[in-house]
């Protein structure tokens, strides 16, 4: 199986590393400019292609690690060429696009996976398993939070362009929207607020959302691009009628460094890190790889990706309109 990776930012590089731990071959790499792709291509013996059209005939699977607003067009093109696809989250910038992506993939009989990597983090998976086993009874109130610093980019910072990324509610909080839905099921209504500082000396974005699930559970989701680099922290609290699960990334860090400070550059985006024998990104790619070969199904589907985009879009609408948004049943999700 030959994989073509589109995008060489943090996610493209991470996926390339993950693919290298499978039997698949990284056949091609595309970046905005060919020179940006050279280093990664050299490391994995891949060919640099100038664009998607040039790469598609030479690969079996396309792994799309580009900014959110570009996912739609690339998926449509790759699907129409009969290629299986892995797409970074959010699946698309808009619900209508995500629906069309799924339907196009169905039409051409290709597989589409969305990289909601949080489902592959062991702490999140273990909590899900514990709940499925009934360890805390029926979940009633979920609290999920995720916080870091505002993403930096030397040029063209698409993260901060809400038209491209959907901002903090879609780009960051979609992780926990997806997870809340994984735990407590379909979401009926959402109410959200967000603040984005326009002051360049105060790089702060923060979002809050309350979800009501169809089964009666309620979820509180918060997302922060507000902390000083290199902070990245996550928190889970799931209260059930027969128990409570808590997770705090700071409290469970096995190593705390209190080193005399030395000036150092932090990375462009905040990243989770806990020492593990296998990166969750690798676990994810391995599972998609097995699913592509028909060996086993993946724990997250394109329909899940669409549902997460729908929740995030509802959050954006709610924050803009100041009212609670009722989410409609999507045939692509329910079927």
């Amino acid at each position: 199986m030959k994989v073509g990776i589109v995008g060489v930012g943090f996610m493209g590089m991470t996926h390339a590393q993950a693919w290298s731990e499978t039997e698949a071959q990284i056949g091609g790499i595309i970046a905005e400019t060919e020179s940006e792709a050279q280093a990664l291509a050299a490391r994995y013996g891949a060919i640099v292609y100038p664009n998607l059209e040039a790469m598609l005939p030479n690969v079996d699977v396309v792994d799309i690690c580009t900014p959110t607003h570009t996912h739609y067009e690339m998926v449509i093109v790759a699907a129409s060429q009969g290629k299986d696809i892995i797409c970074e989250k959010p699946l698309a910038r808009a619900v209508e696009q995500a629906k069309e992506m799924i339907n196009t993939c169905r039409k051409y009989g290709v597989q589409l996976f969305v990289a909601h990597v949080v489902r592959f983090f062991p702490e999140y998976k273990l909590a899900k398993d514990a709940i499925d086993e009934g360890q805390i009874g029926r979940p009633g109130v979920l609290r999920l939070s995720r916080g870091s610093f505002r993403p930096k980019k030397p040029v063209g910072n698409w993260f901060l362009d809400e038209a491209k990324s959907g901002g903090i509610l879609m780009d960051l909080m979609i992780h926990d929207f997806d997870y809340a839905r994984w735990i407590a099921g379909e979401v009926k209504t959402i109410f959200a607020k967000k603040v984005s500082s326009g002051n360049p000396d105060a790089p702060i974005d923060y979002g809050l959302a309350i979800l009501k699930h169809e089964n009666g559970a309620i979820s509180h989701i918060s997302g922060a691009w507000a902390y000083p680099p290199p902070t990245f922290r996550t928190h889970i609290e799931i209260a059930g009628d027969a128990g409570l699960i808590e997770f705090d990334s700071d409290a469970t860090a096995p190593i705390t460094s209190l080193l005399q400070s030395r000036e150092s550059d932090s990375q462009d985006v905040g990243l989770p890190s806990s020492p593990l024998s296998e990166s969750p990104y690798t676990t994810q790619i391995k599972e998609f790889y097995a699913a592509l070969q028909g060996h086993k199904s993946a724990r997250v589907s394109a329909a899940d990706g669409l549902a997460a985009v729908q929740i995030a879009e509802g959050a954006l609408d709610s924050a803009r309109l100041g009212k609670a948004i009722e989410l409609e049943n999507l045939a692509e999700v329910r079927s």
Partner: peptide, 8 residues
């Protein structure tokens, strides 16, 4: 805005 339930 508020949401309540009675699961516990």
């Amino acid at each position: 805005y508020a949401q309540t339930n009675k699961i516990f």
